[in-house]
Design a protein around this nucleic acid. Structure first.
Lengths: 212, 212
DNA sequence: TCGCTGAGTTTGGTATACCATAAGACGGAA
DNA sequence: TTCCGTCTTATGGTATACCAAACTCAGCGA
């Protein structure tokens, strides 16, 4: 890895706050519909309002925060929205997986296996994201990846609501392994089908949670 | 229209600036890759940095602005990106048109005709947006509409590059009329095909422009 | 002539101050 | 008791101030 030499850019306060706040919302630390009072967030995070406000704009664009009558609040998430998000992800990911399978070279295959291997470990969430990133980037679908990343913020909120997270993780891993196998084998239609199966299952679980 | 009674929310400076700056970028007032120096924008727009900075965050999320090494700059737009955007729009719009055709009621049909009727007039751009909004909303694809709206900012930049805008407008109108006709007739596959034809043509034009 | 250095300037990052408005509390009059 | 008006306060919108890093460029020495 040549990343050892990379100079890490000094972390901007904005990025840190963005990450924190996003995590807080995704993890359910703030309830759906709860108002995000700027000055409270400033106290909570120990930063000034400038930072908080800029971060709120970004989270608004991600759909995690929406404007209430009096100010920003945590976006509400219902099944109607989640269903749409899964539909969109399905289209974009299926397309990317198919194209990726058609053009994956050895580097891509190796990256895919590496990401898959880390999913069982600690940073499961990051590894999963990395897995998809490899697929999208290899397919030349940068913009689609950008979109899916943003949508993932909202989807991730669903995961936090799941109680039995462990068994789903296993299931998800096996599904993703099937995706990877199809991609590595250059089997476009198979990869697409695997993506479809994975997302359909995930959507079913989300539906059960949100309709309850 | 009962909208006569509606109290218009006091326009926030942020919204005005957002619109202005977006228009400036889309129209080519700022060159691709040009640095957006905050203090310059403040002078230009006559507002404070707080506002400018928040607006820049929003435009960043729209992909119209990207972070340079030293600060924000107007995003570069090449054919590789535009092609991806057209691909994504194709998927989302085709899907929406198909579903809209399957469930359009009289209200939707009327709205669609109204929007179509206004496209020839002054606010062609707004009317076009309204046309698609009707289709997406009627199909129950709010989130997809949100995504397409954002992507449209980038696509709109292409239009500004076109010299012969008039003949394309006519062509676009006839294509959109075909979409509307298929939707009104409840012809899902036909609507999808019309969308496909329209976007394919638009993509071809964009390609010619960007590869030159 | 080339290169180094240091002052000055630009620029983005961050914090704070001020203002207008709307919600909420409180009290008086019918 | 209820309704209305007023006062207080919370809150978001906007502007300004300050700082540190980095870029520029003149000046100086080898």
């Amino acid at each position: 890895m040549d990343s050892d030499l990379k100079i890490e850019a000094p972390a901007r306060l904005r990025d840190v706050v963005l990450e924190r706040l996003r995590a807080a919302i995704v993890s359910g630390r703030f309830a759906s519909g709860e108002r995000l009072v700027e000055r409270n967030l400033c106290d909570l995070l120990g930063v000034s309002r400038s930072v908080v406000r800029e971060v709120i704009r970004i989270l608004e664009a991600e759909g995690l925060v929406e404007e209430g009558t009096r100010g920003p609040m945590v976006a509400r998430l219902d099944w109607a929205q989640a269903r749409q998000i899964y539909d969109i992800r399905l289209m974009l990911e299926a397309h990317a997986a198919r194209e990726c399978a058609g053009r994956a070279d050895d580097t891509v295959r190796a990256d895919l296996r590496a990401a898959l291997g880390q999913i069982g470990g600690d940073g499961a969430l990051e590894a999963t994201a990395r897995f998809y990133e490899v697929i999208f980037k290899a397919a030349g679908h940068d913009i689609a990846w950008e979109i899916v990343s943003r949508l993932n913020g909202r989807i991730s909120r669903l995961r936090a609501l799941t109680l039995a997270a462990s068994d789903r993780k296993v299931s998800g891993l096996s599904r993703m392994t099937r995706i990877a196998e199809a991609v590595v084998a250059g089997d476009g239609p198979g990869a697409e089908a695997a993506v479809r199966a994975h997302l359909t299952e995930a959507a079913q679980i989300a539906r059960k949670i949100l309709e309850a």
